Simulated assay, not measured.
Amino acid sequence: MYDFQPETGLDTAERYRQLVDAADALTADEPDAVANMANVAALIREFVPDLNWAGFYRVGEAKSGGRELVLGPFVGRPACIRIPIGAGVCGVAAQSGETQLVEDVHAFPGHIACDAASRSELVVPVVREGEVIAVIDLDSPSPARFSPADAEGLEQLAALLSNRI
């Protein structure tokens, strides 16, 4: 049985350090990418407060050819299944290879609303050998929920997962 839970009263940096340690423990010897993404999505939900969605979009083949983001394992309400590269917060992160920290999703040009309750979003690309292979997406019902410390912690998680998903 796994029982990974953060200690109470942690600052953001320590909470993410513990999240990365838990993710490392769960994914170190598991070669299946889907299993690893599923467990990490569940860990994120345990470790990061005030979320209404946490999960992955993988870079995959578009139905009409080319590449797009395809929904991966997540926790939360049903979500958009396919997102064009460059569209919405996730697509911009995938195209640019840069973290997107959005205080107000309604002010983000081209935002794709999968859950109307989402108010802020943090999306971090997972990069392997210089190529974005996925993004980690966190949504919150609170405006300006995410800080640069959240972005840094999630970037450390993405770096750990780059060869495990």
Rank of each mutant, 00 (worst) to 15 (best):
S162R: 15
C114V: 08
G60F: 07
L26F: 04
P143F: 15
F74H: 12
E14T: 15
Q156F: 04
I85R: 01
C114D: 05
R17V: 07
V127G: 10
S142T: 14
S120E: 05
I133T: 11
E121F: 08
L26G: 08
R128Y: 09
E131I: 01
E61T: 11
V59Y: 04
R15F: 02
D21H: 05
R145Y: 05
G88V: 02
C80M: 13
R58F: 01
G110I: 06
F74N: 04
L138N: 02
P84I: 02
E68N: 13
P49L: 06
S120A: 10
I85T: 07
H106Y: 15
I136Q: 05
G130A: 07
A22N: 05
Q5T: 10
L71C: 06
A94V: 03
V126H: 00
L10K: 04
I133S: 01
E61Y: 02
V34D: 14
Q5I: 07
N52L: 10
G60L: 08
G153F: 08
L19P: 12
L69S: 07
V89P: 01
G76H: 05
D11W: 04
S147Y: 08
A33D: 15
L161I: 06
A116P: 08
E46W: 00
A54F: 07
D29V: 03
A35S: 12
E30Q: 13
D115M: 09
M1K: 09
P148G: 06
V75M: 01
D150W: 03
I112C: 06
D32G: 03
E121I: 09
H111Q: 09
C80W: 04
D32I: 02
G110W: 08
A116Y: 02
G97H: 06
R145I: 03
N163L: 02
F47Q: 01
L69D: 00
F146W: 11
G72I: 10
A113R: 06
E152L: 14
M37G: 14
G86P: 06
P125S: 06
D3E: 14
I165E: 00
L138Q: 01
S64H: 09
C114T: 10
V123H: 11
V105W: 03
E7Q: 15
G60E: 13
A22W: 07
E61N: 10
L138F: 09
I85V: 15
A144D: 13
L160K: 09
I81S: 03
A144V: 03
L160M: 07
R128T: 01
L122F: 09
T27P: 01
Q156S: 14
